[in-house]
Simulated scan of single mutants.
Amino acid sequence: MTDQTEPTASILKSRQGPTKAFCVEKLLSRAKGASLAEIVETSGWQPHSARAFMTGLRKKGYELVRECRPSGETCWRIER
């Protein structure tokens, strides 16, 4: 017999909203891309985890372009 008070995984997922990975992909998809600081702030990940996520995107076939903003800050964006 199952406990009726336990929500299923699909219900939990729908309550949580967008995932961190989804939010970071959206940041990287912007025309201006995202800096490491923006990714860390949005996701709550450590910098090494954010860099590892970008490596994972490359392995999935995404092309990440590294650019320098006028402020001198390095940013990355997904090339479409």
Rank of each mutant, 00 (worst) to 15 (best):
L12P: 02
C23G: 10
H48L: 10
C23Y: 04
P70G: 12
G17T: 13
K32F: 01
G44E: 01
Y62T: 02
L28W: 03
Q16R: 15
V40Y: 07
K20M: 03
G44H: 06
A31D: 11
R15E: 11
I39L: 09
F22A: 15
D3V: 01
G56R: 14
T55N: 02
P47W: 04
Q4D: 07
E6Q: 13
K32Y: 09
L64D: 04
P7D: 05
S14P: 05
S14F: 14
R58F: 00
T8C: 01
E67F: 10
P70F: 10
K59Q: 10
L57Q: 04
K13V: 13
R15M: 14
W45T: 01
K13T: 14
K59P: 00
A52P: 00
E79C: 10
Q46P: 00
E25Q: 15
A9F: 11
I39P: 05
V65C: 05
K20Q: 10
L28P: 01
G72I: 11
R58M: 04
T42P: 00
L12S: 04
V40L: 05
S49Q: 15
I11C: 12
L12F: 06
K13Q: 15
M54Y: 00
T42W: 01
F53E: 01
A37E: 14
T19L: 14
L27Y: 05
G72N: 04
I11A: 15
A9L: 13
G17F: 11
S10C: 07
T5F: 11
F22L: 14
E67H: 04
R66V: 03
E67R: 05
W76A: 03
S10L: 14
I39T: 09
K20H: 04
G56E: 07
E41Y: 10
K60C: 02
K59I: 05
T55P: 00
L57N: 05
